[in-house]
């Protein structure tokens, strides 16, 4: 899997690249408009993470050029501007997803994985982790090949954990992933905890192992 990260902020670029390297991706990076344009014209990527506000030009122009040459490449837009116009224009130009800064790295990872599942595997190979199998297209989950009834949130949570396996998921990242704008309230009510408790229970009831480990003071980890 080859991905290109177009981001002008060096610290952010390195962190994102480092994160995806750990996922086993081949990562390339571009720091400004011209380098980005050059790379998308010369090489082919499975996915491009694109920051819209770039020095030297507009990220949307890079997207336009990219879609002309390689329409099959997946694109995820990053932007500090929480602007509806940018979002609509980006999606109109063929971007697949949109993430507003500041974002959680596991969120970016989950979005990228989902995007790749849709784009690269055309359809959906099931997500498998040991005895657990998820069919993301049909929102079905099985333990030892037996279906398990999960609520929508529990299902999302499980998928989020597995796409981010071996990574620490903070409570804030989980709350934002599951509840979006209502994350504050969810955080306040300790909903993350109760959902994890229920998910754990359901998997174990069906003979699965407990893979969710608590990271003290931080969150949880799927190992």
């Amino acid at each position: 899997m080859k991905i290109l990260i177009i981001e002008d902020e060096p610290a952010l670029r390195e962190t994102i690249a480092g994160y995806f390297l750990k996922e086993g991706f081949i990562c390339e990076a571009a720091e400004d408009f011209h380098v980005a344009l050059e790379k998308v014209t010369l090489y082919e990527y499975d996915l491009v993470v694109l920051d819209i506000s770039l020095p030297g030009g507009n990220g949307l122009e890079v997207l336009r050029q990219l879609k002309k040459i390689h329409p099959e490449t997946g694109v995820l837009i990053l932007s500090a501007k929480n602007s509806l116009d940018d979002k609509i224009m980006g999606l109109d130009l063929g971007a697949d997803d949109y993430l507003t800064k500041p974002f959680h790295l596991p969120e970016l990872n989950a979005r990228v994985k989902a995007l790749l599942r849709r784009r690269v595997f055309k359809g959906s190979p099931n997500v498998v982790f040991e005895e657990i199998e998820i069919d993301p297209m049909n929102n079905v989950m099985q333990v030892h090949a037996k279906p398990v009834e999960l609520t929508k949130k529990e299902y999302d949570l499980l998928l989020y954990f597995i796409t981010n396996k071996n990574r620490v998921l903070t409570k804030a990242a989980i709350a934002e992933h599951l509840w979006g704008d209502y994350m504050d309230l969810a955080d306040n009510f300790d909903l993350v905890y109760s959902h994890i408790k229920n998910l754990r229970k359901k998997i174990m009831q069906h003979g699965g192992n407990d893979y969710i480990k608590t990271v003290y003071g931080m969150g949880y980890k799927w190992v």
Binding site: E9, L12, H104, V215
Partner: peptide, 14 residues
Amino acid sequence: TPLAIIRSKIEYLI
């Protein structure tokens, strides 16, 4: 942007 860096660096560090 700096906030995004702080957050992602912590997420990376943990």
